[in-house]
Design a binder for these strands. Structure first.
Lengths: 211, 211
DNA sequence: TAGATTGTTAATCGATTAACAATC
DNA sequence: TAGATTGTTAATCGATTAACAATC
């Protein structure tokens, strides 16, 4: 029932990988060479066994007494998550949230490069927002196809979310990062990742109430 | 090991509740009175059994042959997640992301009302952004205490994240919605909900690579 | 009464945690 | 050699799925 949701290694683990990556990069920048699972675990407030399991999944082995070699480990995790080289991405909907994401410098550290943005507003088209050129939305399919882009970020108003998603898919996009609350209807081979602020908020306020 | 992470009902379920809520409100607005678990399940692409389990958790029972009464169910879920009446919230860091969140109308549907924003920039202080007054950051603790606010949204630069979080907690804030990548150090009774875009992105790009 | 849907109890599945042998 | 840390195998835990009785 529902879309294709199988992936040999769990999402829970994949979600932790950016944490390791961030921390390992910091350690590398401080000149450290090895990191033990216990040290990583303590900072990230997880169990050391979790760390070892996760890192094993990344393909890089550790050395008893020393820990894991930081530099190879960083490269291993990057390769594993698919962040080795920047993936070209487009963003549709240059409103407040869209502009914020365009200005988010952290994406570069996570293998994502936004190469084009789209908006229907003539006042925005032709300009650059945080260095990214803004095109008219009706050029989306064509430009996506020409640039061979596989990931699209969707920050448009609810009303046009489905049609813009359709335009992305028509251009060859395979994964959509959906910041709207619309339940998109897409072909089975397209992967949708919803970014649901309401869900996060629910977890927070529920925990506050339970206490 | 680590903070207080116990909550008698799983986060997975709590995360699904906003989906039900959104859908049920739409159905109510269309004039519908009952919703069956099968109908909800089909739209949300989950199993009907999951829906029944989740809704049972909300405390509202269904009727065989009819389904669940929409209006009581909405109220039940709202009560359950703690969204019955708007919770006062503050936001610190009126940059791009902060402004986007201040303008996010959806929060009102989720029991959240941002009553004050904080920024150190003198050009922003004293103005209103999307109707929310902006105060100087050094007034944060005082205003939070006076307004008796329990939830804080953190959209400040990494460098000041910890100190602003400290100021929030000093004012009595019990839950922080952390949009930075900083691993905040807080007392055990304070709940931190990280909003990690990198983690979401990792899941998406990993799935694309696995396929 | 017949049929559809709820809600509960049991079975399966996956992830986390624990125990411990292997290794530098 | 002694000691610390990895990595694997087993045990526990929680969530999902399945089966089915209860109910309108």
């Amino acid at each position: 029932m529902g879309g294709t949701r199988k992936s040999e290694i769990g999402d829970r683990m994949v979600k932790r990988l950016p944490l390791y990556l961030r921390l390992l990069r910091e350690m590398r920048d401080r000149g450290e060479v090895y990191a033990s699972s216990a040290a990583l675990a303590k900072i990230l407030e997880v169990d050391p066994i979790v760390v070892r399991k996760d890192l094993a999944g990344s393909g890089i082995g550790g050395t008893p007494r020393l820990g894991f070699p930081i530099d190879p480990l960083i490269k291993g995790i990057e390769r594993y998550v698919g962040w080795s080289d920047a993936t070209a991405t487009v963003l549709a909907g240059v409103g407040k949230l869209g502009s914020a994401l365009l200005g988010h410098t952290g994406f570069r550290d996570h293998g994502l490069q936004i190469v084009a943005a789209f908006d229907p507003d003539a006042r925005r088209v032709g300009r650059r927002v945080s260095g990214v050129p803004v095109y008219a939305t009706d050029k989306l399919t064509e430009i996506v196809r020409r640039l061979n882009v596989r990931i699209g970020i969707l920050t448009v108003p609810q009303a046009v979310a489905q049609s813009v998603a359709d335009a992305m898919i028509a251009g060859g996009i395979r994964g959509i990062w959906n910041f709207t609350t619309v339940q998109l209807v897409v072909p089975a081979e397209v992967i949708i990742k919803r970014e649901d602020l309401a869900a996060s908020l629910a977890v927070l306020s529920h925990r506050l109430h339970v206490k």
